[in-house]
């Protein structure tokens, strides 16, 4: 697809920002997202080509305005719901429970 992910040769995307002594992960949640990739792939839920395509389908504004591990998270959620491993309502309900805090 002719998506925003296909970036080669575009102008106007801003300066290259290099972080000195960059850590491998910037947030604890990034670790969890990274660490779930291989276990999920091992269940046969999706392969790397499907993961990439799910990221490509996220839409240009979201793609440019979210970080790398948010792309992965979006792809997991999308593919797991599409394949019937989870339902959107399970995700929504669980998020609400977590947001309300421990009981």
């Amino acid at each position: 697809m002719n998506g925003i992910h296909d970036l080669g040769g575009m102008h106007g995307l801003g300066p290259i920002v290099v972080e000195k002594n960059e850590p491998v992960f910037h947030h604890a949640w990034e670790r969890r997202v990274f660490g779930m990739f291989l276990p999920l792939a091992a269940t046969g839920a999706f392969g790397v080509d499907e993961l990439r395509h799910a990221i490509e389908r996220m839409g240009a504004p979201a793609y440019l305005n979210t970080s790398y591990y948010e792309h992965w998270l979006f792809a997991y959620e999308t593919l797991l719901v599409e394949k019937g491993v989870l339902t959107q309502s399970e995700l929504t309900t669980r998020r609400q429970q977590i947001a309300q805090g421990p009981v």
């Binding site: 697809m1 002719n2 080669g8 040769g9 990439r52 490509e56």
Partner: peptide, 12 residues
Amino acid sequence: INPSGHTRMPRY
């Protein structure tokens, strides 16, 4: 070609 699905052929 301009497939609407997944491809690894960059536009450039």
